[in-house]
Write a protein that binds this DNA or RNA. Structure first.
Lengths: 230, 230, 230, 230
DNA sequence: CATGAATGAGGATTCATTCAT
DNA sequence: TATGAATGAATCCTCATTCAT
């Protein structure tokens, strides 16, 4: 149904600057744009309130179109949610792929990868929040996405390559499982965003300031590097 | 300990009048039990479906009592949710406190602490799921719980003690921040439960088998130990 | 779900006269009555506009309760429709059963049966209209009613008895199939109500006046009697 | 017979301007054919689901053209419905007229007429279903068709002729009203198709098999013949 | 304490129809 | 003529919550 060529127009919703012309409620007749705009708005709504908490009316209101268009393109609230989910994963994959770490020394490459991941999560909290939402729903929607699983293996391949080079070089332990390593990186990098609210409340600590984030980023990077080091 | 455990009957109680008289005798049902039963059922419902996804009707149905009782004890859906949240944190605190690590060598104590945390999350997925749900809601409800923050500092104190002993002993680095360490342990131990669904779907790996859990537990423990090691 | 003891309170909706007390929007707390009232109103709406043409809002408006109650008792528009359908068939069965034809001479009994059926259809157009609506929907809803089919066989049994007596008496042919006979009676008696609008428009004839109905009733009765006569 | 068959382009046309010029050449698609195709598809849709149950989108989808064309030719859903209704009646009239019964002996002619009608209904269930749908809507649309009523009187005239010949011949009763007779024939012949679903469900009988249909046809024919017989 | 009935406000979804190209 | 995009106004349905008993 409909085209899926949605041109992703940046991760940060509201900040998109120049958008050529008239904004609100202009009949676009550009399906890709309409679609992308809906997804952009919906991403924020779903990541902020969850699947059941999100309101189609609210999404429609923040959109350049009407509620009816949401159903025209996505068929249902869940259909829209799935599209949002897919889009989130597509974006992170695209960006992760753009990292070129092969030329760098393994340890440095790994550090860069960790820092990049850490920064990405902080810059794009919608992503990890969507992941949480989807996990609350037992991953039932991601399981329905046709062309997702394979693609993300790039992240693993990249790690495997780094580790292999590190081992060859003698700086890394040989018994590192790339998937396990990826899991640890993900866990450590997403916690700061995903669990920010409860953790900071309970332990009365700041987790969002630049300083706090920077310190945590180094701690996380350090932890990963020490883990793989020989 | 008759009926005084129906403690915080709502932060902004509007109508609940004095009800400690004649009525008491008609039914012998233990209010504590009723309350506990509701919380038990609600915990599962909220952790499975989130705050907005959970249905009061469903909770009432699974309960030994009726919907009316839920409102009688908790005043609103949010009131019930808060009670559930509080209960979750109370339980984990109680259990964490029961760990006596002071007698053990620091490294061993830390390892035990990590393994314990890891196992607890696996055995009680409701907890981490509730934490996720609460974070989706920006921690606004946990912030309203009157007597929570202080209590959990025990976990930090315990870690601080272990690290101090490790440093004194010469087996641990001196520049370890206990809160940062706790964050890492939490992140690594909760990821397996919290992100299980998306991660296993995307990377087509098993995360729930005994073997997978055991391997991951050791990897996590290893990571923490290497991190603090001198 | 809910009780199905709905006390049928007369076939003609609007005409019900004395109803004890206050009418509009009084909290009844008498589920049977609420249910019956909803069915009464819904019967008319569905028979007038069909399943898809009927509006839940309209039904609710004409009811003593609210739209919400419709869903409370009947779960969905289709659920309400099914309840209405069942009620229609229950009523006609009840009334048909009340006819005591065994004491009368066969020919006379049959004539009375035909006239009664003819008059019933005219007096209760909702019934045959509901049957038409249900046939437009391929009988899919009546097929879902749990306890219907058996019961209506009384109508057949009654006819079989009449014919048997007529045959024994020598006034009726022996090769009359009671189901086939019932079908003819139904066809002839329902046409006047069911196809009234198109037929009278096309042939520019009056079908609703007392005289027209009376003449048609005799023609139909005559046709049936001649058919079975020896 | 190029484009003049797009006859009654709406009884209350609001906007349709003169469109008989330049455009004609761009596409060679035969408008008559397009119209006929739409009507064909719509006939089935309306007769299957009723006026309110039918979906313009579905009709458009099953059509060789687009939704826009439906509105171009028929102006509205009701306009299309009316066109379908008219087409149904036109077809049955055309076919009924093709029966040449004047040469046959009256009783035989009548029998043939009944059998023909019976078979036609079975072969064209859409017709009787449309009639039912229209009656559910109180015949309000057929009343709007400009040139229908007169035409169908042929059916009555034909019957009148047969009966007159039968009376003259001495085989038929003199007091037969042709309209009343037509009504009976219609009732008996349409019931098998129109009420098939409910009747077969309630009485657990088969009404669609060849054998069942044949038996019923003879019963119906027999009933009509006995009715008119002297 | 306990229950089933009742409800208003809101939320997802659908539909006939029109517009831009 | 023809098409896909777009839409407002319903329309069905749900939910937390309250009332009568």
């Amino acid at each position: 149904m409909a085209s899926d060529s949605a041109k992703p127009r940046g991760e940060g919703a509201k900040s998109a600057p120049a958008k050529t012309d008239a904004r609100e409620k202009t009949r676009t007749n550009d399906p890709d744009r309409t679609r992308a705009n809906i997804i952009e708005v919906a991403t924020h709504e779903f990541s902020e309130k969850g699947l059941s908490g999100a309101r189609i009316d609210e999404i429609a209101e923040r959109t350049h179109t009407s509620k009816r268009m949401i159903y025209y393109y996505f068929e249902s609230k869940e259909g829209l949610y799935r599209a949002v989910l897919e889009d989130c994963y597509r974006r992170i994959r695209t960006i992760e792929s753009s990292l070129d770490l092969k030329a760098k020394p393994p340890m440095e490459a790994l550090a860069q990868r960790v820092r990049f991941t850490f920064d990405y999560q902080i810059a794009n909290p919608d992503f990890i929040r969507m992941v949480m939402v989807e996990n609350i729903h037992h991953g039932e929607h991601i399981a329905q996405l046709p062309n997702l699983p394979i693609t993300n293996l790039e992240a693993i391949d990249s790690l495997r390559d780094i580790v292999a080079r590190g081992v060859a070089e003698g700086t890394m332990r040989p018994d590192i499982d790339p998937i396990d390593l990826h899991m640890s990186i993900s866990a450590l990098c997403s916690f700061n965003v995903g669990n920010r609210h409860t953790f900071s409340t309970i332990f009365k600590v700041d987790m969002t300031s630049r300083a706090a984030a920077a310190a945590r980023r180094e701690s996380v990077t350090d932890m990963i590097l020490r883990f793989v080091a020989k």
